[in-house]
């Protein structure tokens, strides 16, 4: 099965999961070859991948396959179900009509662009705030540092829905309804405590020696921040950005409250918009299911083509605690 997938995909993923994803760090614990593999597919030997060796017997291998396949069937079933339902009435025409005759005033691909745009605002705000605050909390000395850091972390578990009413009001006052900024900001507000925690922890792991040296050279904090801290924190920043995009893609709450313009509908919101626009009978129901399947396609492409990117980001900058 694996051999039937396009080679380029294979390459990306194979490298991804065979290697330590962080290219920057020394590869302490691995006993195999050079950091970059030749761009050519090859079967890995046992020495290549120590994990390969832990499957010791035929029976074990069989059990692993059996369990994986069972779970894969369970995991794939919902999508299968949506496909079945989408073909129940009118067949493939349901898919064609989604593109020729957009549902709910918004072309289906536009919803993903909207999610992406919101994600960009979300990520930009979170990264800006978290990196600067992370620097302050990890590299600057000032009275009350730990206390204020704790105060920031207090909001780690606050759910968006708890500040729904005031955000509604704030958005109204700032005139930000129907803008990407209006949705990106509250999303960022919810992510920032996590971002600050991440950047501060990452910052503490950046050796002080480099900074001290720069300090002795007479570099000011702003130069140190920009020329040393930011570049060294790159993996954590990427991690944060990836998470921001994923969370924006999944966020239903803010767009559903703060967007009224149909052309701004995000992918998560589209599910409810379409369900209301297509809620009137058998033909509609099939078409709605077709729209669900189409909405899932970008996620498939994301996993197939972007997984290396995601996992790279996720792993390199994670918190230790």
């Amino acid at each position: 099965m694996s051999d039937t997938l396009p080679t380029v995909v294979g390459l990306e993923l194979e490298r991804e999961f065979a290697e330590r994803p962080n290219d920057d760090k020394p590869r302490q614990s691995r006993n195999d070859g050079p950091p970059r593999r030749p761009k050519r597919r090859r079967r890995r030997s046992r020495a290549d991948n120590p994990m390969r060796g832990i499957v010791t017997g035929k029976a074990d291998r069989f059990t692993i396959y059996a369990l994986l396949i069972l779970m894969a069937v369970l995991f794939a079933f919902p999508l299968y179900s949506a496909i079945v339902k989408s073909l129940e009435v009118n067949g493939i025409q349901n898919y064609v009509s989604l593109f020729t005759d957009p549902v709910g005033d918004v072309p289906i691909w536009q919803t993903y662009l909207n999610s992406l745009a919101v994600g960009a605002v979300h990520a930009a705000i979170v990264v800006t705030v978290s990196v600067t605050a992370g620097y302050a909390f990890s590299k600057l000395q000032f009275r009350g540092r730990e206390l204020s850091f704790s105060a920031v972390l207090l909001f780690l578990a606050v759910p968006g829905i708890a500040i729904l009413v005031p955000v509604y009001r704030i958005t109204q006052e700032l005139g930000l309804f129907n803008t990407y900024l209006g949705v990106g900001m509250p999303e960022a507000a919810i992510t920032i405590p996590f971002g600050v925690l991440l950047m501060r922890n990452y910052g503490r792991n950046i050796g002080d020696s480099l900074i001290e040296a720069a300090n002795l050279d007479g570099a000011g904090h702003f130069r140190i921040f920009w020329n040393i801290f930011v570049p060294l924190s790159r993996p954590a920043i990427i991690n944060l950005m990836v998470l921001c995009f994923i969370w924006s893609l999944q966020d239903f709450l803010w767009p559903s409250f703060l967007f009224t313009d149909p052309s701004l509908t995000t992918a998560a919101q589209a599910v409810s918009t379409f369900s209301s626009a297509l809620g009137r009978g058998a033909g509609d129901l099939a078409r709605f299911n077709a729209s669900l399947v189409v909405l899932a396609v970008p996620a498939v492409l994301f996993v197939v083509f972007g997984l290396r990117f995601i996992v790279n980001g996720l792993t390199t900058g994670s918190t230790k605690d």
């Binding site: 993923l13 999508l79 994923i246 893609l249 239903f252 998560a268 599910v271 996993v303 997984l307």
Partner: peptide, 14 residues
């Protein structure tokens, strides 16, 4: 990987 990761990368509402 595709099958197992997919649900987490789609909108939850979907």
């Amino acid at each position: 990987y595709l099958i197992f990761l997919l649900p987490a990368l789609m909108p939850l509402s979907l």
